[in-house]
Design a protein around this nucleic acid. Sequence first.
DNA 1: CCTTTTATTTGCGATATGCAAGTATTTGTT
DNA 2: AACAAATACTTGCATATCGCAAATAAAAGG
Lengths: 148, 148
Amino acid sequence: MENVRELFHTMTKRLGLLDRNCCTVGEIELSLVQSHILYEIDRMNEPSMQQVAEALAIDITTFSRQIQTLVKMNLVKKTPYPRDRRVYILSLTPEGKYVTAKIDAEVNEYLAEVFSHMTEFERETVLRSIRLLNECMAKSTVCCKPLF
Amino acid sequence: MENVRELFHTMTKRLGLLDRNCCTVGEIELSLVQSHILYEIDRMNEPSMQQVAEALAIDITTFSRQIQTLVKMNLVKKTPYPRDRRVYILSLTPEGKYVTAKIDAEVNEYLAEVFSHMTEFERETVLRSIRLLNECMAKSTVCCKPLF
DNA sequence: CCTTTTATTTGCGATATGCAAGTATTTGTT
DNA sequence: AACAAATACTTGCATATCGCAAATAAAAGG
């Protein structure tokens, strides 16, 4: 059996690099973490602070401060939750939505470029493989368990 | 076409989580970055500072300081390169080798657990897919280009 | 010999991090 | 109702990380 870790190491390294290209939209400079936060808020349904922080496995205190920054940048809105006033619901402002959509488009463009080096069949196989891998990681007892 | 980014987002998130479990060996606490540095030094052939920093796409100044820390921890050795005295060759100390091997074993164990949820055929397919993906990312003009 | 380039280090200011502790609110108990 | 315990979030603080600009030191090119 060849070195499986090597394979994963290379992949994560390259995905990381790919990721880093995707954090500037016009005037706005985002850190990687911030772009992930925007992505998660967009994806989740009226999430609370806790929920997003947990989904991204970010410490809640760090997360709290990141959100403060994003609110100041006018990308995220914090709405008090009427049924439980300890809770804040997070959402994207119109500007936040715009930025998130831009980043999403850019990432997808990058990925399309990567996939352009494959045949249609290979592309299907790779995507199916990633889907399967995600499922199996979700099943794993080692990581990810409480978070997804 | 479904959302490809979603797939990659989930995968990188989970790989990141998996990674985070792998940075403590006995008394020694490593950051994620530090464990990647050890891995690269181990893998490369008598690399210089530059080479490792570049392979990991870490800023050279940050890298310099990380190496100082790892040298203090007695995990990495810096050897002056006789042919060019500006250069330092990096290598692992016996302790560094031990720690790196331990981490490697742990990661492989985690991966084996993830793969245990697949059939042999699926496992082969997934590994082949990752290999292909790595190749295509290396070919990509968007990222990774000067680095690998 | 002197200018330029290259490899690495240091100064510094801006963030990011996470633990401990604090505030505010809700929930559970009697 | 009253109060202890739990929960959601924020702030203080000490530490770590980041990357640009500048410094140092050595090599390479004229």
